[in-house]
Simulated assay, not measured.
Amino acid sequence: MDAPRLDISKPGFSMRSQEVADARAKSWFAYTPYGIAALRYDAVKELVMSPSLRQGSYKWPDHNDTHGVWAQWWKRIMLNKEGEDHTRLRRLGQPAFAPKLVKSLLPSFQALADELISKFEARGECEFMADFAEPYATRVICQLVGLSDENWREFADLAVEMGYALGVNYKRDEARVDAAATKLINYAKALVEERRAAPRDDFVGNLIAASGVGGQLSEQELYDMIVLTIFGGVDTTRNQIGLAMSSFLEHPDQWALLGQNPDLGRAAVEEVMRTRPTTTWVTREAAEDFEYRGLRIEKGTTVHLFSAAASTDPEHFEDGFDITKTRKPHFGFGGGKHHCIGSPIARGDMTEALKLLSQRLLNPRLNGAAEWLPDSGNTGPLSLPIAFDKAL
């Protein structure tokens, strides 16, 4: 079937490029070096729920010819499991991210945001990623899993290093990715040993109870889930908060509106994740031969769902960035049975951060050159220097 071709493996490929927009205008899908990519909103919405597709990101290491520590961990985790194993692991992890727990954590999110802002507020400038996004995202996860936040800097750095595995240069960066994964797995083992010596009724404590004699969670699954919680929570939330600030730098009227109306905080999170999601695509694999919109898709075919392209599809979304508009659901947290298990925590901590930041950092603007991860896979700022006016 005739369709555009997108080389998502080439350095410099951008999900926000005119190339992707042109491909979306021509066809609901494009061919890629790894399979096909769905580009339009309706197609992504339907395919993310399709019973003919399974989670496909488990093949990401194979696509990159990588086989090290991170690759093995990636294939074991809940994200890449199907059927009974996925259901079991998701059930065991779900209570840690329940709405009731999120509500109980909101005061600590607010206190942490206030503490961090207070450290640089008087200067009228900051390196937003280093001074706020990284410590905030990391210390939130430290609180969740019961790690001391004295070492938050190391956890943040390890999450950055592991995050390179999700970019188009994974093969090149495999050694640094594996070194970081090894360190986090060792931290998880030490945390479990410490918690077994001094039990606590919390997220890790519940996982340990599930891994006991006759339990449903193996020792390896226990470590893997802790590492997934740390990596996923730190890497994606840090990136998404950075992308939020970057988006508002481009739309100062919206930032002022949020500062005046903090109840728009949740809507601000959703609009940022619609237009600038850190996870720019999710991956599925055909579990059987099937046909979709006239395209024959064979079993084993990789199907990328371009969430960033879908959620800006002009057929369903007006151009622009507006936190007051009611939009269709985005795919920033994936969808279907593999919808991000940690989304309630992420939505909660980002909402509180943006509410307070918009009230304390007025008229923010870029204050130097920003550095970025590749604009594909998982993306976000590595550095984002800003200046701002202090609130009276």
Rank of each mutant, 00 (worst) to 15 (best):
L222Y: 11
F155V: 01
N206H: 11
D202K: 04
S211K: 14
L222W: 11
E154F: 06
E150Y: 15
E193Q: 04
K189L: 09
A190H: 04
G232L: 10
R200D: 04
W152P: 07
D149V: 11
D201G: 02
A181F: 15
A180S: 04
W152H: 05
E219Q: 11
A190E: 10
Y187N: 05
L158R: 03
L228W: 00
D157Q: 14
A209W: 03
F155M: 14
L222C: 09
R195T: 02
Y164P: 04
R176E: 14
G212H: 00
G167Y: 01
E174T: 11
T182L: 08
K189D: 03
L158N: 00
Y164W: 15
L191G: 01
R153S: 08
A180E: 04
R172P: 06
V192R: 05
L166A: 07
D202Y: 03
V168F: 10
P199S: 02
A159T: 09
L207N: 05
I185E: 07
A159L: 12
R195K: 10
R172E: 14
F231W: 12
I230R: 06
I230K: 07
A175N: 04
G215P: 09
A188I: 01
A188K: 02
T229H: 08
G212Y: 00
K183A: 15
K183M: 07
V227N: 05
I208C: 01
G215C: 10
A179S: 15
R196P: 00
D224L: 01
V160P: 01
S211L: 15
E161V: 03
Y187I: 12
L184M: 10
Y223H: 12
L158P: 02
D178T: 10
R195M: 03
I208P: 02
N169K: 15
N186E: 11
V160L: 08
L158K: 01
R172G: 12
N169V: 13
A190C: 02
G214Y: 12
A197L: 13
A197M: 09
D178K: 09
G167K: 05
S148G: 12
V168P: 14
F203M: 10
S218I: 04
Y170W: 15
S148F: 06
V204T: 11
D173H: 13
G205N: 10
D224I: 00
E174H: 14
D202R: 05
G233I: 06
Y164L: 15
A210T: 07
V213A: 15
Y187M: 08
L222M: 08
W152F: 12
S148D: 13
V204L: 14
K171C: 11
N169G: 13
E221N: 07
Q216G: 09
L166F: 13
R196V: 00
V192I: 06
G232V: 02
F203P: 04
L228D: 05
L191K: 02
A180G: 01
A181G: 14
A188C: 01
V234W: 06
R172I: 05
G163Y: 11
Q216Y: 12
F203Q: 03
K183W: 08
G205C: 14
D202I: 04
Y187A: 15
A165N: 14
E219H: 11
L222S: 05
F231S: 05
I208M: 00
I230Q: 08
A159P: 05
V204S: 07
F231T: 08
